[in-house]
Amino acid sequence: MEQFIEWITQPWPWYVAGPLIGLTVPILLLVGNKSFGISSSLRHVCAMCIPANIPFFTYNWRKEMWNIMFVVGVLLGGFFATTFLSNPDTIVVAEATQQDLAALGITDYSKLLPAEIFSWENLFTTKGLLFFVIGGFLVGFGTRYAGGCTSGHAIMGISSLQWPSVVATIFFMVGGFLMTHVLLEPLMKMVGF
């Protein structure tokens, strides 16, 4: 039992987590004929709360409530795993990444997200504007424009062998590489890192 507890509180390797995430695809199909996708939930929230007579938000969102239940579950799952199965040690990050991030002023590895960026104190600063407001907006706008995110395109779309999803995934990576290698440093300097 003690060994089991130790095993389950350790961070899980990719070859455990990846296949389990992949299993979500057949489970959702078999349980309810649903295609795996997460960013659609943001659209359903818009359709539910602020449709404003926009055709993009005037579909039957009630039929898609399963998706909202799913993301509420993801939030609760995050809570349970953190509360009951949390790893007490600091996160292990690649040496090279630590060096790169130190140059940007990121050195706090005590939590899964760096406290230098992701804290309430930063909310009403240019740091918060960049990482929360602009970052979130790009994620919401971009995923909907692309018609899906990592789950809907990279996992569900490619799993069902749909080439438009391969295109989308390639451009997710292009955007990510450009931000990380070209834009991130000047942007972070600009907001005071």
């Binding site: 960049l130 990482f131 929360f132 602009i134 970052g135 979130g136 907006f137 790009l138 994620v139 919401g140 706008f141 971009g142 995923t143 909907r144 424009y145 692309a146 018609g147 995110c149 990592t150 395109h153 438009p164 999803s165 295109v167 989308a168 995934t169 390639i170 451009f171 997710f172 990576m173 292009v174 955007g175 990510g176 590489f177 450009l178 931000m179 990380t180 834009l183 991130l184």
Partner: peptide
Amino acid sequence: QIIGGFIFGLGWALT
């Protein structure tokens, strides 16, 4: 899928 995908990628690396 190209333009939106690219925009999401920028946000993914930030957030």
